[in-house]
Design a protein around this nucleic acid. Sequence first.
DNA 1: CCTTTCATGGTACAGCCGTATCAACATCGT
DNA 2: ACGATGTTGATACGGCTGTACCATGAAAGG
Lengths: 205, 205
Amino acid sequence: MPKRVDHAERRTEIAEALVRVAGRRGLHAVGMRDVAAEAGVSLRLVQYYFETKEKLLLFGLEHLTGKFGERLAARIRAAGDGPGPRAMVEALLMTALPTDEESRIFHHLYTSYAVLAVTDRTLAAQPFIKDPDAAERALTDILRQAQAADLLQPGVDSQLTAAGLLAMSAGLGTSILVGQRSPESAAAVLDDHLDRIFRSVDAAA
Amino acid sequence: MPKRVDHAERRTEIAEALVRVAGRRGLHAVGMRDVAAEAGVSLRLVQYYFETKEKLLLFGLEHLTGKFGERLAARIRAAGDGPGPRAMVEALLMTALPTDEESRIFHHLYTSYAVLAVTDRTLAAQPFIKDPDAAERALTDILRQAQAADLLQPGVDSQLTAAGLLAMSAGLGTSILVGQRSPESAAAVLDDHLDRIFRSVDAAA
DNA sequence: CCTTTCATGGTACAGCCGTATCAACATCGT
DNA sequence: ACGATGTTGATACGGCTGTACCATGAAAGG
């Protein structure tokens, strides 16, 4: 056998090139040639590793969500060592906001994919869009634990609250993305709502 | 002068054709020829009334937001005759959810435009995206009135709450759009949060 | 009536897209 | 060493896109 190149790694490199250029010019404006140029390889090579554009996009989405999932998990883990459930919830929700460049790109492209998924059944069947309950379940669990520890206001429904907080976080995210709102004000909005869910005692850092 | 046709009306017809076909196949997949066919006119006519595709898209967005604004205003007015502030707030937020086909299309295309606005400065400068504070101000006012009438829970910040509710509504909207959530469960989430903002007395229809 | 002006239609032109084809190169098994 | 095979490159093709061009029809003003 010849040259022996790690296919998985190459595919990852190309997918990251896709993410970079799509984040810069928009997913709709990205072509195979752009990806190839960004990755510093020939067009043919992109075709070689991803036979078709659709497969490239699909893999790019996987890669994107994968990296974001890791990032999220890391932040939650870091917050887990900290003061309490509220810090974990804040970490989770704040990570979901497009604050730095990486999360901005994630939000941008995730939303792009979501829009495409409305009219593309292949995309709609992807797990990221099909099973986002993962985040919801995780948040629900955290809230339940907090509730068991009597850290929440009375009458809080963990599941509905988790769903609402995630939706709010997503909505704030796109607001930030299009420049309607600053990350700081979005954080203020989230905090205000958390104040109405957690008992006030817990507020400390 | 010749035939005398109401230009504004024709432009509206074509814009509605654009909205229809874009709602069906996605904004990214819409071409001039598709719009012409959908409107039952020739390609040249579309070019005649909108010199360029960009102008067509811009006008389509105006039309879309205009119609949606009217719809929203009508619902709020209808709810205004009703029982109280909470009903108005619910009307406003529920109208923003993609329940029927018309609002689904609105959400779909609005999000499409928002994504494009991330990389297109002309689109980003459009008022719809530049000044969506209209809805936020309106909701804030309603909440303030409710607060003055002592209908809210103590410690509610009208502005932050309004922003949060709108963001949550938007987030729930896209969840519905991509099929992650049913309109009913989204309504439940919203109601749950309103329960934590309004005093319980007000709950009746 | 007849010309001017608006309105409309058909069609052609570059340019870009994704994909396929053809060819060369490098490396590993034998 | 040598052929087989995984890997890379250059280029061509058909289809689609937005836009521009040319021509015709229809109605109001002289």
